[in-house]
Design a binder for these strands. Structure first.
Lengths: 337, 337
DNA sequence: ACGGTATATGCAAACGTTTGCATACAGGAG
DNA sequence: CTCCTGTATGCAAACGTTTGCATATACCGT
């Protein structure tokens, strides 16, 4: 079907051999090449539109220039922002990203990892699927560089891991509500079974010690967030604030207030962990705890890149700091400030 | 760094030669292999965890098992759904997807295409960046299969192209508002300079002939959608309905009504083109024109797959039908039904 | 006994690269 | 006049596959 120009074609055109062409095009040192010949080679490559074949050069031990990324949910902006950050790090060095959605299905994840190994990717950035950590064993076995993001790799240790400060996020959110005088709170969370993620609730409760906290667990979707929030608010009308531990659930959950005719920041206070870009508005913003998704992606990609280049990477574990962003969705009802 | 098992390793273990191993593992016909030897090879491959190297086999003319996808905006769900659909088509055949965000920047796009050609992808699904059509010339020159999605490839013809029915989407949305009795309307659109996309407005206007239509153009973001809508609503309080030509703009724009205290479906009617999954709610849904994003992705990927397999693809141009999904955001103010 | 065919396996070339080694001709020092 | 060093280039092996060709044995019909 498609016909690509090879080194041989370029060599013929320039009246030399493929070896010389390779040296010129890769700008290798340790070999003398006359200005005249170099120019002829460059011109020939340009005229013929030569495009190097990564697959062939990787056979000789060169980088494949491919990075694999595994995320559990394509439509979750937390993960897409990580991908965007990784892309920025790698694209400038000529690497392409293969981004795969495991849909949190370990079987699927297993197949994906196998395919990526088949592609001989140079490295992997992985958010393990629920119950799927074991799938990454083969990655370690073949000695491929890998950086884990967000969730931990259960049953392994000594791996590189970049996460949000989950406990800190919960704590910051809880403390903010406490400071604004709220003492009766609803916490909407996700019973993922991953203790690292569930530590958001621990942080939240630690910050609001002495308060009434009604915890509800929703599924990992806007729809479930809506339904659960509806139930929670109806069962606990005394609560003055609702806190969402997960962005996706908040996205659905906030519509409950609209449907019930409750004014956010007035009749009910609301805040959440994550970045509510789904709610852009001129002057009526949600208080939220920013997890630093972009920075997480940047750091994970940076570590992976260093590993690929053979650089020493000192710390195995990186915890991204979080930031509380105050908005107008939390009302001060007699708190400290 | 990483060490992979090769055919040679498997052959040694099974006490045979690499040629035979290749035949067994690929299940090729046209060659006799005893059950005994076949079993031994299979066992050896299993024990050693052999993983084929796509790069090497593609040198011999096999498929690279890589597909490139170019989209202009990673965070736009219209495009991510297309990617998800394409993934479903290709993953089952062992292909990986390299999804690249051009950010609508032609320079960037040029680099991306060059990188993908370097990877020797088997085919390309492309939404050309604004003003970037010329970048795809090289794809045609090397004879690589390509399917264009959404926007046209300006200055080319004879290419495969799958789009939404942009005119029809606008028409359906306009007709729905007209039927509900609305005669004074705001249309929020995007002056992209791409006539195919701007035909949404033509369709809208054609459906509402005889009505007053106030057109405002916003940038391609939620923020710009918010600001433009705010201006439009303030300048034309007499309008009974607002129609958004683009999902992203609607996502920001609808918050205007909340901020102004206008009840959607009561004080103001609202509908849009796209899928407002950002607004999940139990019983208060937006009327919208569904473009069939998923189907577009499915069809584009299907065509590309057929092309790769050398199948004849009859029609160069596919237009996806749209569907009007009635919600509760449009009030009947004395229309026909 | 002989040719033919079905079964079973090995050998080696080729794909497009990279790179170590060999070759060749200068000019300068001894 | 030789030897060395610097400059300039070609040759061929290797990477991990795929596949056409060659080889070898067994069994059958004549």
């Amino acid at each position: 079907m498609s016909r690509f120009v090879t080194l041989k074609d370029v060599a013929e055109r320039a009246g030399t051999t493929i070896g010389t062409v390779s040296y010129v095009l890769n700008d290798r040192k340790g070999r003398y090449i006359s200005q005249e010949l170099r120019a002829k080679v460059l011109a020939a490559a340009e005229e013929l539109n030569y495009i190097k074949c990564n697959g062939a050069s990787s056979l000789k031990g060169m980088d494949r220039r491919l990075i694999g990324i595994l995320i559990p949910q394509y439509e979750n902006q937390f993960f897409t922002r990580i991908c965007v950050a990784a892309e920025e790090v790698f694209a400038s060095h000529g690497y392409d990203l293969i981004i795969c959605d495991t849909f949190d299905n370990p079987e699927r994840e297993k197949g994906i990892i196998h395919r990526l190994l088949s592609q001989r990717v140079d490295g992997l950035i992985v958010t393990p699927s629920l119950k799927g950590s074991e799938n990454t064993r083969i990655v370690r076995d073949v000695g491929l560089n890998m950086v884990v993001v967000d969730r931990p790799l259960e049953g392994f240790d000594g791996y590189y891991w970049v996460t949000a400060d989950n406990y800190g996020c919960g704590y910051a959110g809880g403390m903010d509500l406490y400071r604004h005088g709220h003492r009766s709170l609803i916490y909407i969370g996700w019973a993922s079974g991953i203790s690292e993620l569930e530590s958001r609730e621990r942080g939240f409760r630690d910050a609001c010690s002495g308060c009434e906290v009604f915890t509800y667990n929703a599924g990992f979707s806007a729809k479930s967030g809506y339904e659960t929030t509806m139930r929670a608010v109806k069962e606990h009308p005394e609560a003055t604030a609702v806190f969402f531990g997960f962005n996706v659930q908040a996205q659905g959950g906030v519509n409950v207030f609209r449907d019930l005719g409750l004014r956010i920041g007035e009749d009910i206070s609301v805040s959440l962990i994550g970045s509510p870009e789904w709610s852009y508005t001129g002057n009526n913003d949600f208080t939220h705890v920013h997890m630093g998704d972009y920075e997480i992606g940047k750091k994970a990609a940076g570590i992976l890149f260093d590993l690929i280049r053979g650089k020493e990477v000192p710390s195995k574990r990186v915890i991204q700091e979080c930031t509380l962003i105050g908005g107008t969705s939390v009302k001060n009802i007699g708190g400290i400030e």
